[in-house]
Simulated scan of single mutants.
Amino acid sequence: MDISKRHFLTSCGTLLAGISIYTVAKELAQTEAELGVDQTQTIKYAMVHDENLCIGCNACEQACREVNDVPVGVSRVVIKRTGPFGEYPDQSYRFSRLSCQHCENAPCVTVCPTGAAYIDSETGIVGVNADMCVGCQYCIAACPYQVRFINPVTKAADKCDFCKETRLKQGKQPACVEACPTHALVFGNIRDPDSELVKTLKTKPTYRAKMDLGTRPKLFHVSTINREIVL
């Protein structure tokens, strides 16, 4: 790639990133107004997964399992590998993260008959109260991202909660973030303009899965640059 083309793509990426964070802020405010959310809330956690930095080592999966006592056979975080793209020896893979999206408009919360599925009013994290869960699996059926499961030990619905009950309570980052050797994960408060999360959203163009469903997820992805282009 020549210098002029590289400069052009970099400039486009910066522009798209600026548009992205503006759109995110606008959508967030609109959704919260519609849902009657307290817009003076100072904390709203979100995460960015950079597919260009992820190497598919699965350190995040293992750290999550150990810290949150996730039984064998189920997982709160899955790194999906697709590819290879290109021809040998210039081949590459795409590594994408599958986990709870912590939706602003969460279908799992809407359908839960007991209130076990909820959105935490202080952090915006979508959580599960295992003591209230009756295992009806309505939330599993309603989740468009297919990231919920029944914990074989507790018999309750389970999923990623950004380590709300473990690491966050200790004032630490989620286990997956600290375990990532390439710093492909960035976690923070989307309401804090000085947070590393917001700085990342401002400098890198991102996408969110299934935005057409109106769920307004708070898991952002930086798309792999050299993956296969589908027309």
Rank of each mutant, 00 (worst) to 15 (best):
I190R: 01
D90H: 15
Y93K: 00
T42L: 11
A209C: 05
I79D: 01
Y138K: 10
S195F: 02
R208V: 05
C64V: 04
R167W: 02
S92A: 11
M47Q: 12
T154W: 05
I190F: 10
I119W: 08
G127I: 00
I125Y: 05
P107I: 09
V134A: 07
D2C: 10
K169V: 03
I79K: 02
K155E: 12
N68D: 12
S223P: 01
L16M: 14
V128T: 07
V37H: 07
L168W: 03
I119A: 10
V177W: 01
C139F: 07
R167Y: 04
V177A: 05
R81V: 08
V222I: 12
A179H: 00
V67G: 02
H102K: 11
V222F: 09
A33S: 10
A46L: 04
I19G: 00
A142D: 03
L15H: 15
P174L: 00
L35W: 13
P84L: 10
A157S: 08
A141W: 03
N52S: 09
A209Q: 03
D69E: 13
C139S: 10
T200C: 03
R76F: 12
S75F: 01
E61I: 14
N151Q: 03
L15M: 14
L185Q: 05
C57Y: 05
V74F: 13
D69K: 15
F85T: 06
I55H: 06
D212H: 14
C108W: 02
L185M: 14
A156N: 00
A141L: 07
G18F: 03
Q173I: 05
T14R: 15
A29F: 11
C60A: 11
M211K: 10
V48C: 13
D69A: 14
C54D: 04
F220G: 01
R167P: 04
R81E: 12
T31H: 12
P71L: 12
S11I: 03
A175M: 06
Q173W: 09
D131V: 08
V24G: 01
G127D: 07
A25Y: 09
A25T: 02
R216T: 08
D131H: 10
C112N: 04
Q101K: 09
A33C: 07
E34N: 14
T200G: 00
N105S: 07
F85R: 07
P144G: 03
F95W: 15
K26H: 12
Y207E: 07
A156S: 11
F220D: 03
A59L: 05
V126A: 08
D158P: 01
E87V: 14
R81L: 09
G214M: 02
Q101H: 12
K26S: 11
A33M: 13
H49A: 11
E34D: 15
Y138I: 04
G127K: 06
P84K: 15
Y138R: 11
L168P: 01
R97L: 15
A179M: 02
I21P: 00
Q39D: 14
D120M: 04
R81W: 06
C163T: 01
V70G: 09
K155W: 07
Y93G: 01
Q137F: 06
N189S: 02
T42F: 11
L197N: 01
N189Y: 06
P152W: 06
G56V: 10
V48M: 10
G56I: 05
C100I: 07
G56F: 07
E34C: 11
C54L: 08
R216M: 09
F85S: 09
L219S: 00
L98P: 06
K5M: 13
